[in-house]
């Protein structure tokens, strides 16, 4: 009984693997459908040769570049928008108008403006990361208890110091929410950007995990390679998420 309970989590993943194996064995060889063991072997090769880690790292670098730039901009702009009503009122319509535009839709423009290299990808990532970041910055700054700001003022503390000692820590939990969402969409967008750059620019030398997937798709027609890349994408997404959470736990000791 107890054993059955403990085995519950493995039932569906195991079933999935078995189905996959059976389907691959049924399929015609021309379909090039890999069995799970093929994927494992390919994965091992790609990790051992350093190709997969390198591609993931390249993509991650672009994500960090785009994220850092747009997070800095969103932080400054969002704080100004939340703290000064005229700024917020006038910029809000513009931000709300751009927010529904899917980042990938701007890729063609980015290619026109920046070519098919890192800047275009970083632009898409920055655009994608900007909105969760600014929305949560504004929300965080606005949700600070005004009583705390009054308390600091009655202690004779100046405006800039209040910004640093009250507003920033007060908004920090929301900033982390924003960062987690922003990095999530940024990671998704970089893959789309690299895939599309690969697809449309005819496999340029831009690198990254999306590019690698495209090469497996279009040139070497290697399904197990694609699946390995997908797993790599998932693992990095998970690591980013857990990393931000750990940082949050460490930097916000008063919420534990």
């Amino acid at each position: 009984m107890n054993l059955a309970l403990r085995l519950r989590p493995f039932v569906l993943p195991a079933l999935l693997l078995i189905l996959w194996q059976l389907a691959a064995m049924q399929a015609a060889p021309a379909d090039r459908m890999p069995v799970p063991a093929d994927v494992l072997a390919t994965g091992w090769t790609l990790i051992a040769s350093g190709e997969l880690p390198l591609a993931l790292l390249q993509s991650l670098q672009r994500v960090m570049l785009g994220f850092a730039t747009s997070a800095a901009l969103a932080l400054v702009l969002g704080t100004a928008m939340a703290a000064y009503r005229p700024v917020g009122r006038n910029l809000d319509p513009i931000i709300e108008s751009f927010r529904p535009i899917a980042p990938i839709a701007l890729l063609p423009l980015a290619i026109l403006w920046f070519g098919t290299g890192t800047p275009a990808a970083a632009f898409i990532v920055g655009y994608a990361a900007f909105f969760p970041m600014i929305v949560n910055t504004i929300h965080g700054v606005r949700s600070i208890d005004p009583g705390l700001i009054r308390a600091a003022r009655t202690l004779g503390v100046g405006r800039l110091t209040i910004l640093r000692t009250v507003v920033l820590p007060g908004a920090l939990p929301n900033l982390f929410v924003g960062a987690r969402l922003a990095l999530g969409v940024a990671w998704t967008s970089i893959i789309a950007a690299e895939l599309a750059v690969g697809a449309k620019a005819g496999g340029g030398a831009s690198g990254g995990i999306g590019q690698m997937m495209f090469v497996f798709y279009a040139y070497s027609v290697d399904l197990s390679g694609i699946i390995v890349c997908m797993i790599g994408v998932g693992v990095v997404a998970l690591l980013i998420d857990r990393g931000v959470r750990a940082l949050e736990y460490w930097m916000i000791p008063w919420k534990r």
Binding site: G147, L148, R150, A151, T154, L155, V166
Partner: peptide
């Protein structure tokens, strides 16, 4: 506001 006048708030307003 100034530091020569201190305030204790009803809800304490502790950071």
């Amino acid at each position: 506001p100034g530091s020569e006048r201190g305030v204790v708030f009803q809800d304490y307003a502790l950071f």
